[in-house]
Design a binder for these strands. Sequence first.
RNA 1: GCCCCCGUCGACUAGCGGCCUAGGUCACGGCCCUUUCAAGGCCGUAGCACGGGUUCGAAUCCCGUCGGGGGCACCA
Length: 423
Amino acid sequence: MPVRVRFAPSPTGYLHVGGARTALFNWLFARHEGGEFHLRIENTDTSREVAEAVGQIQETLRWLGLDLDGEVTIQLDRMERAQEVGQQLVAEGKAYEDEGAIRFRMPNEGVTVWEDVVLGRIEYPNEKLEDLVLVRSDGRPTYNFVSPLEDVLDGITHVIRAQDHVSNTPKQLQILKALGAELPVYAHVPLLNGADGRKLSKRHGALTVEEFRAEGYIPEAFVNFLALLGWSYDDHTEIMSRKELVERFTLERVGKSAAIFDYDKLRHLNGVYLRALPPDEYADRLVAYLRERGYDWDEQRIREAAPLVQEKIATLGEFPDFAGFLFARPEPAATDGAVLPAAAETLEQVEPFEAERIEAALRDLAERLGLKPRDAFQPIRLAVTGSPVSPGLFESLELLGKEESLVRMGGTGRGGASGSSAR
RNA sequence: GCCCCCGUCGACUAGCGGCCUAGGUCACGGCCCUUUCAAGGCCGUAGCACGGGUUCGAAUCCCGUCGGGGGCACCA
């Protein structure tokens, strides 16, 4: 039987990183096995918000590169089918009417056992199982009823979900047994926690995949990072392409304990991926990102700036702060502008105005003035970029052009040696 | 309260009885390189929760304690 898995989020809004990780593990498993990956929306109402959330979830999965098989199924569409099955269970004496609702008869003794691919053998005492409502008095089926029912209807072979579902599993197993259905294999993947070890929440930072996207993380890096949360290939391999992840992913190597979402490591990985991109593709991504974020900066200029920042920033979102001075005059920064007049005079003579010549001229100047390179260049950087941190100075000057560079240097230079005044 | 699960450096993890003086990565510290910031190179700090067993031998197996998480709905 071919493998078929499903990712079944509830449509409460944008996809959370925890959900994304669960979706990724499902997808990796399906692709590794040559099986199918389906999306099922577990809703109990059909509000407009739900429709929007479904769209957002699909867009996020698309961005992550987790392609779907088959049609997206909506839980509520199965409502009537679930009611019929509920009635059938009543007829068989496996469930009973209770004030208009249908309630399932749970066994009172014995244990429900399953072999969890991640957790191992789990035994759950049946006496702890309460008779649960299958269909509410208003006719809507409950989650613990439809979810396993749909798994049967959809031919789901492996249920890969987060560990907060562990205690639902014995209930669902009992229902499946009553239905006479073939049982799927269960794999409960560890949860994702925030820095304090507690539930991941807003105060820990970004939470939805869309937020990370907005901050300039790229999907390859994000997927690689997510894969490493609760799964590992061996004792040293970390950077893996999507293809390699698919080849190497197995549920057997998924860990049991909850992981903490490490923003530092994500950022590092993103930097690794960004630096590894071919220059022209890096520029493409940067342009696309800035457009997405609403920047109307000149595309040609962005492309020219790309090589100056590729080695230096770890997320595309850092570009505006880091290289924004190339697109608009920065606020003048406080600096000791003593060298500025001489530097301006020197640069005036540089022709053509190219990084290599600029560097040679300025180094020569520094030497004549008896200044360390850093002492000579930093005031220029401050004047031209408006910041003590910037892309390479000489390349930046070249990009800006002689005229604009001199204007910026002159603007601060007039302040004289004190240079502490902004004007 | 009851039930289930988990427990290796600050973080992600490797480890499935001897290869462990516990390995890799991020973060952190130092040095080098250097026009700033990064990147890169070298070095370093730091961990098997605790207590009992089992065994010639335990991070690895068993029991207990402690700690953490999840769940106990006509929510999903």
